[in-house]
């Protein structure tokens, strides 16, 4: 799993599956159950698809960059820098998740959506961003940096 291009392809596939599951298959449930003052649930669904898509895409790009970086020869001589790099990418994913959740909140401030739905959106975005990044790098990091991800 940690060989190129298998890790790249599996990461893209996993990201796509999660996005389809959350944004398409769960789309109706996520948009028709919250209280919406004026907005059409279909419009909210479109927004969620876009935001979930941005989160998943950036997470996939981060994973692919990590695979590319981890395969570079010079990295084997400087695992300290690699560790910093992984943490930087991981924290960026968390920030991305927060920013995207805030974007959903800002776009729907006037709609009166209950807080629990924002929590659910945050949780789903977390899966699509930093958790996806963590799982993919935990399982599929190139050999040289395989012990860098958190928990390895």
């Amino acid at each position: 799993m940690n060989k190129s291009p298998v890790n790249y392809l599996l990461t893209i596939a996993l990201g796509a599956i999660l996005w389809i599951a959350f944004a398409i298959m769960m789309g109706t449930y996520l948009t028709e159950n919250p209280n919406l003052a004026e907005k059409d649930p279909a419009d909210l669904a479109g927004e969620l698809r876009l935001i979930f898509g941005v989160g998943a895409l950036l997470s996939i790009i981060s994973c692919c960059y990590w695979y590319y970086y981890g395969n570079m020869n010079k990295v084997s001589n400087n695992l300290g820098a690699a560790k910093k790099k992984w943490w930087m990418l991981f924290v960026l994913q968390i920030i991305l998740c927060v920013v995207l959740t805030v974007a959903i909140v800002l776009m729907n401030m006037s709609q009166g959506i209950e807080a629990k739905w924002y929590a659910i959106y945050f949780a789903l975005l977390a899966v699509l961003t930093f958790i996806l990044f963590w799982i993919c790098t935990f399982l599929m990091s190139p050999r040289t940096v395989k012990f860098i991800p958190l928990g390895k």
Binding site: S76, L79, A82, K83, R143, T144, V145, K146, F147, K152
Partner: peptide
């Protein structure tokens, strides 16, 4: 040194 892949594979 546990993050070194070759070391980790053998000793972690």
């Amino acid at each position: 040194v546990r993050a070194e892949a070759w070391y980790g594979d053998n000793f972690n």
